[in-house]
């Protein structure tokens, strides 16, 4: 199988204060560390495992600025054969624009594939729709939140999709298709710094997004960035570790769950 995996470089925001600039015009991401979108690790791993078992190759594709090359190196270190950067300085907030660009690119460059993998969602924008849009544009089937690939046949796959509350559905999907891969489907392999350094020796290809810009337009626009609507919020417990510990145990006692 030839599998193309979309891999996005995202800022790591969990422990960072995010500042909104110029009265809502932008979010300041400049000083943040970046990494491969967590869900895309699972996508790359699943693709590499399928190819290790059944033959073929994995191509990692990133849409972004030159720095996005970082995720291609990581994907190669995990076992991808190729890394393609679809380079654009412009941040395309609308996944429709990104999917159109990817669709044009795959067609124009005649990239061969039996399956396209994406992550379930990007950690930054959480749209969870890039793969579905791309599948529709390419007029091929789509299955989202894939938590297991049960069988790989010549012309189709049988996959399990995760629904809510512990329920899954098993579906048959014809090839070629697009799958969005859910976290937990596998255990992504460990990648060492040495591994990434070695992967840097494998050539990655850069394609200018402007060559595939036909019909690439945004159908939705950000008018403003805003902090979350403040709810009542928590009563904060302050003090040194002894004090905090004492106060916390006091609350647990009061609530009747700890003697």
């Amino acid at each position: 199988m030839e599998i193309v995996v979309f891999t996005k470089r995202v800022p790591v925001t969990q422990e960072e204060e995010l500042r909104i600039l110029e009265d809502g015009k932008a979010v300041d991401l400049r000083k943040l560390p970046h990494r491969m979108n967590d869900w895309d690790n699972y996508g790359v791993e699943e693709a590499v495992r399928m190819v290790e078992k059944g033959g073929g190759g994995v191509t990692s594709v990133a849409i972004g600025d030159a720095e996005a090359d970082e995720v291609l190196r990581r994907a190669i270190a995990m076992g991808a054969r190729d890394g393609f950067l679809l380079e654009t300085e412009e941040v395309l907030h609308d996944p429709f624009a990104r999917a159109t660009l990817a669709c044009n690119f795959l067609k124009k460059e005649k990239i061969p594939f039996d399956a396209l993998f994406t992550g379930v969602q990007a950690e930054d924008d959480q749209f969870a729709c890039f793969g579905g849009m791309l599948a529709a544009m390419l007029k091929i089937p789509y299955a989202a939140q894939v938590i297991g690939v049960d069988s790989v046949e010549k012309d189709h796959l049988v996959v399990r999709r995760e629904l809510e509350g512990g329920l899954q559905e098993r579906v048959k999907v014809s090839l070629p298709c697009v799958l969005s891969v859910q976290s937990g489907i596998n255990e992504p392999r460990y990648v060492s710094i040495m591994g990434v350094r070695k992967a840097s020796k494998v050539e990655r290809k850069v394609f200018k997004a402007s060559n595939y810009a036909d019909n690439v337009k945004s159908l939705i626009e950000v008018t403003k960035w805003a902090y979350p609507p403040k709810k009542e919020g928590a009563a904060m417990i302050a003090g040194d570790v002894n004090e905090v510990c004492g106060k916390l145990l006091g609350i647990l006692k009061e609530k009747g769950v700890y003697q």
């Binding site: 609308d94 996944p95 429709f96 999917a99 969870a128 729709c129 890039f130 793969g131 579905g132 849009m133 791309l134 599948a135 529709a136 544009m137 789509y142 299955a143 989202a144 939140q145 999709r161 995760e162 629904l163 809510e164 969005s180 159908l219 939705i220």
Partner: peptide, 19 residues
């Protein structure tokens, strides 16, 4: 949800509609 987001993405892509 799992199926809601799946259907919406595919339909928006099909109809070239904003999502």
């Amino acid at each position: 949800s799992s199926s809601g987001a799946e259907c919406a993405a595919y339909a928006a892509g099909h109809f070239s509609a904003p999502l």
